[in-house]
Amino acid sequence: MNDIPYRSALIIGAGPGISGSLTRLLRTAGIPVAIAARHIDKLTPLVEETGAIALAADASDASQVERLFAETDARIGAPELVIYNASGRVRGPIVELDPTEVEQAVAVSALGAFYAVQQAAKRMLPAGKGAILLTGATAGIKGFALSAPFAMGKFALRGLAQSAARELAPKGIHVAHIVIDGVVRGERADPSDSTLDPDAIAQSYIDLLRQHRSAWSWELEVRPWVEKF
């Protein structure tokens, strides 16, 4: 039985990890899904498996995000659920970082999220309904050495989520920020208890969508059960 209260979904920054797991769960529930990435060739196996629609877009480019939403409208209707998973990473000592690369990384993590939230809100506000989920990270809570650009982008993403939730929730739009506090299996780690299972993460996203509006969460934190914190 599908008790997810949304009829169409757009996932931006799609890949085989969390986005792949989310796509499978949503498609199993009978929800049409558009998945977007800069390079959609990598999405072919997921498209063939799930029947999702792959669309190309650079999330750091406002005009491309606007076009992405227009294409989604045409293919599956205005998305009632938008999930932003894109992020930019540049590592290194502050004195050695290339400012252009830093600008691009922050643009993907933060500005791209704003473009997506803006386009989503334009469609959801008239309907008085929708959900926007933004994928964060530990770096949005504390900045690590040699990872300033990632922290900058994720801190901005968290601020965007909090501000958007306060503005849009009273108008029927559920905005939530999910802190992924650890390494996701299949990205940079083996399947051990110290890593997060992308299927389990995706299930947490779905659980958020099922919340009654009288008890909406604006932020959720997930981490491996063996982690000390």
Rank of each mutant, 00 (worst) to 15 (best):
Ile76Tyr: 12
Arg75Asn: 15
Ile31His: 07
Gly20Pro: 07
Arg67Gln: 15
Ala56Thr: 12
Arg75Phe: 15
Leu10Tyr: 14
Arg67Cys: 14
Ile53Ala: 10
Arg89Asn: 03
Ala70Gly: 10
Ala70Asp: 13
Val65His: 04
Ser63Ile: 09
Arg27Cys: 08
Asp61Arg: 11
Gly30Ile: 03
Glu66Asp: 15
His39Lys: 12
Val47Arg: 06
Arg7Ile: 12
Ala37Lys: 01
Ile31Gln: 06
Asp58Gly: 14
Ala54Gln: 09
Gly13Ser: 03
Ser87Trp: 12
Glu66Cys: 14
Ala86Phe: 07
Ile40Val: 15
Ile35Ala: 06
Phe69Asn: 02
Asp41Glu: 13
Thr50Arg: 03
Ala62Pro: 13
Asp61Phe: 05
Phe69Val: 06
Arg38Leu: 08
Ala36Gly: 13
Asp61Lys: 10
Ser21Tyr: 01
Gly13Tyr: 14
Tyr6Lys: 07
Ile35Met: 08
Leu68Gly: 05
Gly17Ile: 00
Arg27Phe: 00
Ala29Pro: 12
Glu80Asn: 10
Gly17Asp: 02
Gly17Tyr: 04
Val47Ala: 08
Ile18Trp: 00
Ala56Arg: 15
Asn85Met: 13
Ala74Ser: 12
Val65Ala: 06
Leu22Ile: 04
Glu48Lys: 00
Pro32Asp: 12
Gly88Met: 02
Asp41Phe: 08
Ile18Asn: 05
Ser87Cys: 09
Asp73Arg: 13
Ser19Ile: 05
Leu46Thr: 01
Leu26Tyr: 01
Gly15Met: 02
Pro16Arg: 05
Gly30Trp: 09
Gly30Pro: 13
Gly13Gln: 00
Ala70Thr: 11
Thr23Lys: 08
Pro16Asn: 01
Thr44Ile: 05
Arg24Met: 02
Thr23His: 06
Ala86Ser: 02
Gly30Met: 05
Ala36Trp: 05
Ile18His: 03
Leu26Lys: 13
Gly15His: 02
Gln64Glu: 10
Ala74Asn: 10
Ile53Trp: 10
